[in-house]
Design a protein around this nucleic acid. Structure first.
Length: 624
DNA sequence: ATAGGGTTAG
């Protein structure tokens, strides 16, 4: 619009700067009224500024609603440009549904079209995982003649890829004469999302090297992480470092996720210092994965240091939550609760995952009353509706604490259907608190629910045996064999000077096997002098007599690992072990004794949590 | 205008 208007551009700029200072709806209304009065709402430039401000991601959602209202009711025939503005703004400010709604309104208005909206619309579809909408938009843009527009095609590939229709994406990709970087990256992402990592990797290899950018690398790395193939992910990360594309902060975050899952403390530390050296600032996502990596590697002190070093603004819900969940699985319930309180004081709203973390912390630490009160506040104060995970935490909380009847009643009256996890945690509680009758009933339910789960039979047989019903225990064992249920072998690892040593139960493959066995006999004698008697309760199955059970229990992988740790590290250093399964009672007892007799801290990562052994005690309070 | 990263009960 030409500046023949009755107002000066200076006056308009002044009003717009007032607009940007608005923080409440009242203020916004005032500026809006002033703009109307001055005739600014006939100027497309002013309207654009007004709407973009209201839709920008830093504005509140009430501003966005206000803009929608102004757009639909306060404007005379908005043109294509303004429709695009609304659709784009809503799509990128996390309101994909409304964005699509505006698209439909646009279709029924008299506005003409241009291609610029389609990538944003398709992004909204991706966010909503809306396949139907994607096909509709696809048809529409083809009809309008934008079917060869590379931006639109790439966005289509992406939408099909993330809505799980990789074959549609592939068809489009194969039709492009010269796929660009974005086409390749989108397609690779699609195969990764479909769990087809082999195809994704083949494509990645086939992609012209000159076209690979950090996004390509991160796509394939995070694909492996999501597939749980963390070692492969780290291998590719190494390859990336030898390529001509230096990792940026997103690549680092993906690699750190892999480290977290593996508990690869050394590599994680290396990435952390790399980020510092490259002056990559720790944003909230990096803080999250760093804290998670340190916590899952057993180093809560370092996790806390990361948390303390970032600004208050960087401490998003996710950052708070990851810290709290770290405390939870380290058995530090008190810390978890006080962080949770602090977070609320800081005005950060907990989400569903935060509550899971807090409730887990209560359950692991036996904080029954706190757990109950948190559970009651979640819906009342924060409008977070409890899901099956939260009910599961409550069942676990009550069951572990020995309140078996209350737990059972809770399951009966809760509004969600109990799943195998919930029954499993009740069963475990029955085992800990020796309630044979309830345990047997639950065991039946569980085996009926998933007959291929080996652990269920083990528990069930243990419960029978606990009640002295040996014939039933034997019967369960037979059933287990019949089903062809296989036990996963126990495996422990210990990292020393950058090398990871792996031990499997009873395995002799380690180069220093004989030395380790000799050393274990010495350790064992020393433990016996201090009153150690083997704990064979967890070894009821498969084995005939105590002698045999003892022979097996002494070959458990974590015993080999801790022995090796004692041999290879200086007195006083902390021994860190990771295990793929839960610790058995005997190994737990041995770790406690070693921590006392050898004056060593032992940090052991279980399948689900950490045990810190120090001076004969464990942070789990023998309750795991 | 289009492509990559975060936390979750046993």
């Amino acid at each position: 619009m030409s500046l023949t208007s009755s107002y000066s551009s200076l006056a308009l700029e002044h009003t717009l700067s007032c607009l940007h200072k608005c923080s409440t709806e009242v203020e916004l209304k005032q500026v809006h009224a002033r703009m109307l009065k001055s005739g600014y709402f006939h100027d497309p430039y002013a309207i654009t500024k007004f709407l973009s401000f209201c839709l920008s991601s830093s504005s509140s959602s009430t501003f966005s609603s206000y803009a929608q209202d102004v757009f639909l009711n306060g404007l005379d025939r908005p043109d294509t440009f303004l429709w695009n503005l609304m659709i784009r703004g809503l799509s990128s400010s996390d309101q994909p549904e409304t964005s699509l709604l505006f698209y439909h309104r646009m279709l029924s208005s008299s506005a003409t079209h241009n291609p610029y909206t389609f990538p944003f619309l398709l992004k909204a579809c991706s966010n909503l995982s809306a396949f139907q909408e994607t096909t509709q938009i696809h048809a529409h843009l083809t009809k309008l003649g934008y079917g060869n527009d590379i931006y639109s095609v790439n966005s289509l590939i992406n939408s099909y890829a993330v809505t799980g229709n990789i074959n549609h994406a592939r068809l489009l990709f194969d039709r492009i004469q010269e796929p660009d970087l974005v086409s390749w990256n989108s397609l690779i992402k699609g195969y990764a999302k479909a769990g087809e990592m082999d195809i994704a990797l083949t494509l990645f290899r086939k992609m012209p090297p000159a076209k690979k950018n950090a996004i390509s690398w991160t796509t394939i790395i995070s694909g492996y992480v999501q597939a749980g193939m963390n070692k492969e992910a780290l291998q590719l990360f190494h390859e990336m470092q030898n390529s001509n594309v230096p990792p940026d902060k997103v690549s680092l975050a993906s690699a750190l996720s892999a480290c977290a899952q593996l508990g690869a403390l050394d590599q994680g530390k290396w990435i952390h210092s790399y980020a510092n050296k490259q002056r990559i600032s720790i944003d909230s996502v990096l803080a999250c994965v760093l804290i998670d990596m340190y916590a899952k590697s057993g180093d809560m002190e370092e996790a806390l240091r990361v948390f303390k070093n970032i600004t208050k603004k960087t401490r998003s819900v996710q950052v708070w939550t990851v810290l709290i969940s770290g405390y939870a699985y380290h058995g530090l319930g008190g810390e978890a609760i006080s962080r949770f309180t602090e977070m609320q004081k800081m005005g950060v709203r907990p989400n569903a995952i935060t509550f899971t973390a807090v409730l887990t912390a209560c359950s692991y630490t036996g904080l029954v009353e706190q757990g109950k009160s948190v559970f009651h506040t979640m819906e009342r104060d924060y409008n977070v509706k409890p899901t099956v995970e939260h009910y599961g935490c409550m069942v676990d909380l009550l069951g572990r604490a020995g309140l078996l009847d209350e737990a059972n009643r809770f399951v009966k009256k809760m509004p969600v259907k109990p799943n195998a996890v919930i029954w499993g945690s009740l069963l475990k509680a029955c085992q800990i608190h020796k309630n044979v009758e309830l345990g047997e009933r639950i065991g039946e339910i569980l085996i009926g629910m998933d007959p291929n789960h080996g652990g269920r039979y083990v528990h069930m047989a243990n419960i029978h045996a606990m009640g002295g019903k040996w014939d039933k225990a034997a019967e369960t064992r037979r059933l287990m064999k019949e089903q062809g249920v296989v036990k996963v072998p126990g495996c422990s690892t210990i990292s020393l000077e950058g090398t990871t040593h792996e031990f499997t139960a009873g395995d002799r493959s380690h180069a220093e096997t004989e030395k380790i066995r000799t050393e274990w006999r010495i350790v064992r004698r020393k433990l016996e002098e201090n009153g150690y008697v083997p704990e064979l309760e967890d070894m009821l199955l498969d084995l005939v007599d105590d002698e045999e059970r003892e022979a097996v229990v002494h070959q458990h992988s974590e015993k080999l690992a801790v022995t090796y740790g004692l041999m290879k590290t200086e007195p006083g250093t902390t021994i860190r072990i990771m295990k793929n399964l839960r610790v058995c009672k005997d190994c737990h007892k041995v770790m406690k004794l070693i921590s006392k007799i050898y004056k060593r801290d032992i940090v052991m990562r279980d399948r689900t949590r950490f045990h810190h052994f120090r001076d004969g005690k464990c942070t789990c309070g023998d309750y795991w």
